[in-house]
Design a protein around this nucleic acid. Sequence first.
DNA 1: TTCCTTAGTGGCACACTCTGTCAATAAGTC
DNA 2: GACTTATTGACAGAGTGTGCCACTAAGGAA
Lengths: 192, 192
Amino acid sequence: MALPLRERNRLAAAHHIIDTAIDLFDEHGYGQVTVEQIAAAAGVSPRTFYRYFGSKEGLFTTDPYTVIGADQIQPHIDPDDLPGTLRRIIAAVTDPPPQEAVPAGPPWRGMHYVLQEPAVRAAVYTALDEGSRRFTELLRERGMSATQARVTARTYWFGVYFGSLEQWHLDGRVRPPGDYIDQALAALHDLP
Amino acid sequence: MALPLRERNRLAAAHHIIDTAIDLFDEHGYGQVTVEQIAAAAGVSPRTFYRYFGSKEGLFTTDPYTVIGADQIQPHIDPDDLPGTLRRIIAAVTDPPPQEAVPAGPPWRGMHYVLQEPAVRAAVYTALDEGSRRFTELLRERGMSATQARVTARTYWFGVYFGSLEQWHLDGRVRPPGDYIDQALAALHDLP
DNA sequence: TTCCTTAGTGGCACACTCTGTCAATAAGTC
DNA sequence: GACTTATTGACAGAGTGTGCCACTAAGGAA
């Protein structure tokens, strides 16, 4: 009961809409399902859907149920410990702590669509881009040069983080995701 | 006259539409210009616009006038010389060789929108993604592990290549773009 | 409880993007 | 010059996303 009623209702509604949508996607395919159908199945108006998520792809990139949004990633950033930052994000994202208002699970039901549907993937890239932008600023504040900060942030975000997440998923999520981060970080020191 | 008439007409038409569109963007802003207006100003039907570019963002990601498309980049790839690959791409992209059917210049008129307009940026990321995917396959064929290949390809594409291009543009395109690639490659060996 | 303020919702109209289809036209071929 | 094929324009229509306004529900104060 930490959150006020309105907040809880909103989170529950968002969660319910996402869950309903992914059910429909699983059944008919992402491209065959319209926002109107999702809204109807979830018992809300299309207008409300757009208020919650802004777009169809927003289902996968809107806090707090996204696994990749800039806001979600922000608290884990420590510019002085980049490998640690990535490991913490991966841990938080792949093994979300139980919260009363945010039931675990839903983000990962949609991982398939994040990686396979071009439109969703593009939306995720936009979210990563925003995270990388903020990260670049942090590095610049620490005195890093513009080019180095930009390349470093983008390498960690787009290369190590998203690359690891994708490979982890493609391998069936069997091995611990942290292993992929470690492998990816090692690969950076052995670039051809 | 190397190309058949149809081909030449098509290239000229594409070039003209892009040029017309960017004129309108510069005058009214990207978001304020509709495809219908672009088509009308260029003297073609909206349907033809979509046949050429597929989408409004396609203006910036469709060969041969894009600077970042997978097809455009493909011929420069040499998996055994990655730094060289990037330098060749940057060279080809920032200083396109004069071709009779492909007047120089147009791609760079739109660079501003590529970096500033979220929708265009997302489309460019999708193109980069495709390039990176192909590149990952090439590296795998050379015996590289899945994770290493994926991270390496993404690091070079999203980190070094796009990062350098962006920084070069942000700095006013004064210094040679190759310098930024060199700086970025150096940064990879000095990651925090 | 009651009143009041504010946030959230639904419904409507509308602009815009993008696709399927088909007839008309232009280019390439023999 | 006739034939084949690619390209175009016009039209209809589905789907996404936004502005607007009245209505309902929540939070706070007396």
